[in-house]
Amino acid sequence: MSKEVRHILATRNVSKYFEGVKVLEKVSITIPEGGIIGLIGPNGSGKTTLFNIITGFHVPSEGEVLYRASNEFIRIDGLNPHEIYRLRIVRTFQLPRLFHSLTVIENLLVTPVGQRGESILNAVRWRTWLEEEKNLVKKALGILAMFNKLEIAFKYPAQLSVADIKLVETLRGLMANARLYLLDEPLAGLDFATARRLLNFIKEIRNSYNVTFIIIEHRIDLLMETVDYVYVLHNGRLLASGKPDEVIQNPDVVKAYVGE
C-alpha cells in the first residue's frame, strides 16, 4: 500500500487467551480508510474474536487497537461497546441478535445513535422527534425495498426465514451512519442473487460515503470479487495478507483451507 493511504484502524500485536487457551496471537492488521477488507480463515481461526476485541466485547490480553477518531489515532481497546459505537464503529453478529419483540422495521430504526426521541424529555413531546423519525422510516424502507423485502417490514424476527434474519441483521448495521462497519459473515445463508445485491449495496455505500468495511466471510468466491485487500487468519495467527488474487494463489492459504 502506498504512503498516502490514510488508515482508519490498526491492531498491534493483539493476543487473546481464554482461560489459558491462545485464540489470537500477535495479530497486527492495518485498515485503509474507504477500503473493503476481507477477513478470512478456517473455522475457529479467531476472526470473530478479533471483531469482538475491536468492538469492545473483549479486552485483548496483549497488544492494542488504534482508531483514527478525527485526525489522530486513539487507543480504543478497553472502551465499552457503546462508546466504540459512538466512535462510529458498527458490527453485526455472526449469529444474528435481532430484538425479538421489535418488528423488522423497528429493528432497523433502533440502530441510529443519539436519536432525539431517545431522551425522556423529548420522548413525551412527539413533535420534537417526529420529523427525524419519518426520515429514518423512509431510509429503512428504502433499504428494505432495495432487497424486495418490504413485505417483511412488520414481521417479527420469529416469523422470518433464516436467510431473512441474517439479511436484516446486516441491514440493521448498515442503518447506522458508521465510518467503519464490521460485518460477520453477512452472506451466510443468502441466495446468490441476494448475496450479490448485498455486496453491490456495500460497494455503493463505500463509494458514496467513503466509509470502510471489514467483512468476515466463508463464501470466498463472492467475497474476492468485492474486496480490495484480504487478511487470512489461521489458528489465531496472521497467515497471509494481500490482494485477493495473490492470497488465493498463496500455497499456505490453500493448505490452511484444504488441509495437508
Binding site: 466485547f57 461497546p81 457503546h82 458498527v90 441478535r97 430484538f99 425479538h100 419483540s101 445513535v113 447506522a176
Partner: peptide, 10 residues
C-alpha cells in the same frame, strides 16, 4: 430483549 446487542448499537 437483548441488552448486549443494544449496548453494541451504542
Amino acid at each position: 430483549d437483548d441488552d448486549i446487542a443494544a449496548l453494541c448499537l451504542g
